[in-house]
Amino acid sequence: MNVTPTRGIARRLDLVFAFLVAATGVTWLVGETGSAGPAAVALILGLALVKGWLVIREFMLLRRASLLWNLVVAGWLVLILATIALTYWKALR
């Protein structure tokens, strides 16, 4: 039985997890340094977008689902983060 392809999946999952933890560290650092303002917020929301996308595609395995399912779930992620960014921006003015 050729198991190489699935071992590849395990390694891929490990890499995704390592990235997710590193990205969380960056978000934590932004909070610890008390960073405020559009640049800091763009960074943490951007990281949330990438993290969410990775969880959706790699852990929830949306990459094996149809385009429609991907659009619906990723669309939810983008819509929520865009709403957060928009309200943040409006509060600045």
């Binding site: 978000t27 909070g31 008390g34 395995l61 992620l77």
Partner: peptide, 26 residues
């Protein structure tokens, strides 16, 4: 197992937004 896993990932996905939104964004 895949069914249970999908729900668990959803709980994680939601927190990925909740943490920066409530704890960090300012």
């Amino acid at each position: 197992m895949e069914t249970g896993a999908a729900y668990w990932h959803m709980v994680d996905l939601v927190w990925i937004i909740l943490f920066p939104l409530v704890y960090v964004m300012r």
